[in-house]
Simulated assay, not measured.
Amino acid sequence: MRIKLLGRTGIKVSEICLGSMTWGTQNTEAEAHQQMDYAFAHGINFIDTAELYPVTPAGPETYGLTETYIGTWLAKTGRRGDAVVATKVAGPGRDYIRNGTPPGPQSMRQALEASLKRLRTDYIDLYQMHWPTRGHYHFRQTWTYDPSGQDKTAVRDHLLTVLETLDAFVREGKVRAIGLSNETAWGVMAMLGLAEEHGLPRIASVQNEYNLLYRTHDLDLSEVSHHEDVGLLAFSPLAAGLMTGKYIDGACPEGSRLSINGDLGGRYTANQEPAVKAYAGLARAHGLDLAQMQLAFSLTRPFMTSIIIGATSMEQLKVNIGAADITLSPEVLKGIAELHKAYPAPM
């Protein structure tokens, strides 16, 4: 398991991060603890969560359970010093989370203190804004994304307020580093510019979706990552399970995310199936597991800080972590490049 630096913070994280968004619905507390035990025994030191989790499905009844499970594991094992813990403050739109209001000094303070309590810690290593207030093109909004109605002054004023609030958390020792999620290249650069202009904390990472079916980070954001040391934390690295091949030909295994969330957050469309079948064929031709081929490819990307894996079973977890030991041949990489040209945006 390779270790990488988180931006310019000096914090060292494993190239595979343990995701947790099923803990509390699809996974019990005992299963969550078992996953953390196994992951840390195999070189992972990085856990990602959010106040919103679990999300399979999300709702007021289970809100915060995932952080609670992580907190009980940290307390039980005494491994807080070994763990890099990342969590997120929710953006606007969920009425059961602070009445759906946009992040601001008071609401962010409430969110932070609640997360610290659930996590049973007095600091968070990486505190991330879960989604922008102004809107973005992630989560299948590519096809309707239109920033032309944004007011630049109002957006910058809000971003500055967010940064100033995060700065207070850092100065208090309650947060070590800050990050963004579901962001655009302009959003990252705006935050970096405001931080430099006002002497505020620097963005360390951006957590966006990245997989063979969704590769927007290959474009403008990869340039931001390279020049500004804002690496990608890739969520949904298996496209919500599509890139395991388990949903091919209409299959819907009992207890799977598709059986719970319907269309996998808009990913489960007719367009994705030919692409998934093609990638599955490539993996099969080279004796590879499709999921491991996908994850191993993501680990080759120069902008990648860590990929956030999620699993509902120990078998899945072992396969996913095993991708760290896979080296893809030039022939496989060439095949992936050709398929990307054939299926550039299948979902």
Rank of each mutant, 00 (worst) to 15 (best):
Y127M: 02
Q150D: 12
R140L: 10
F139L: 06
H138S: 08
T144Y: 03
W131V: 08
Y137F: 14
D122Y: 08
H130A: 05
T133V: 13
W131G: 03
D146M: 09
P132E: 08
Y145F: 14
H138A: 06
F139I: 00
Y123R: 15
Y137E: 14
F139N: 13
M129E: 06
Q150V: 05
H138I: 08
H136A: 11
L126D: 01
G135I: 10
W143L: 11
P147G: 03
T133S: 11
Y127R: 04
M129P: 05
R140K: 11
T133C: 09
Y145M: 11
D122S: 12
R134Q: 15
T144P: 08
D122R: 07
L126Y: 02
D146P: 13
Q150C: 02
T121P: 09
M129Q: 11
P147M: 04
M129C: 07
I124K: 05
W143C: 04
P147W: 00
H136K: 06
D125F: 00
Y145H: 06
Y127I: 01
Q141C: 10
P132M: 02
H130F: 00
P147Y: 01
P132H: 03
Q150P: 00
P132F: 04
W143I: 08
T133H: 06
Y145K: 04
Q128S: 07
G135C: 06
Y137H: 15
F139E: 12
W131Q: 07
D125K: 00
T142E: 14
Q150S: 00
T121D: 01
Q141E: 12
D122L: 07
D125M: 04
R134T: 14
Y145I: 10
H138D: 13
P147I: 03
H130N: 06
I124P: 07
Q128N: 05
G149Q: 10
H130I: 03
P132T: 04
D146C: 12
S148Q: 11
H136M: 09
Q141A: 12
Q128R: 03
Q128V: 15
L126H: 01
R140A: 12
D122T: 14
R134L: 13
G149P: 12
Q128C: 09
M129F: 08
H136S: 14
R134Y: 10
L126K: 00
W131Y: 09
G135Q: 05
I124F: 03
H130W: 00
